[in-house]
Design a protein around this nucleic acid. Sequence first.
DNA 1: CTAAGGAA
DNA 2: TTCCTTAGG
Length: 328
Amino acid sequence: MGVKFRDIVNPEPLGFNDLNGKIVALDAANVIYQFLSSIRQVDGTPLMDHNKNITSHFSGILYRTSSLIEKGIKPVYVFDGISSYLKKGTQAKRREVKEKSEKRWKAALDEGNTEEARKYAVRSSRMSSDVIEGSKKLLSLMGIPHIQAMGEGEAQASYMVEKGDAWCVGSQDYDCVLFGATRMVKNLTITGGKANLELIELKKVLERLEITREQLIDVAILAGTDFNEGVKGIGAKKGLKLVKEHGDIFNILDHMKIELEVDPNILRDMFLKHDVLTDYELKWRSPDKSGVIDYLCGDHDFSEDRVSSALEKLKKLDMNQSSLEKWF
DNA sequence: CTAAGGAA
DNA sequence: TTCCTTAGG
């Protein structure tokens, strides 16, 4: 879900060539969730192997990663660590939605209502530890680096961009802007041969809105984040107006004579002082081709032809690296 | 979601 | 070629 900032961020269009040679820190949970929800049959059934293991995420990771590399982009996947106690509420709500959706999915299937079935199947997507572990294993076999965050993956990815180790965070959620990512790119996909990339630069957002990052975080807290409910009736636009009028969230809460369920200082620190891993290595290796084929084709019923042609695309990275190495 | 194959 | 639909596991 993430913070609802669509109305105030004003993204700029971007082409894939602008990302050529760039390192993109992908929020793994965000990307894998997209795959689990969208890579399904018409009635909503996910792709599965003969043992009924879900394989939608394998398909997504294989094709998405190889196509990014073919475009000259170097992806690194950042996985979530332990999430904050503040997220419990959001997680409970999501679980409830998923349980309800799963029931409605099954019911629609029994009625033979395919459209309805798919709609609820998508909402029922859940990320099990099997899915996470399998994704990490596939990435390792493909030679793609992945990093285990201490806390939120978005926070770790944002730190890596802020530090200059990656060019942007790739995510569908605006949270990374709050976590201090100087750049984020949305819609890192190629739907129907066409790209619809959106670039959001923290500096430009703050300049245009004429506020500081701390104030932007206050807007988020008012509108609601994954870590707090927010104030009823206040979204990004009203929140922004209030922050500009009163300076910070404390003045606003005083003025409105309301209190939040969580101390705003704690929420601010969530975004400003997140624990991050500072020593990590970003290294793209040539894929273990037979390892990938054993895993995907042997264990999970993928077609060897398709997997091989996806792996061919990974050679682009090898070529770039070896031509670069020649200079040194 | 992306790849592939057939239609326009 | 480009566009659209379907399969993939």
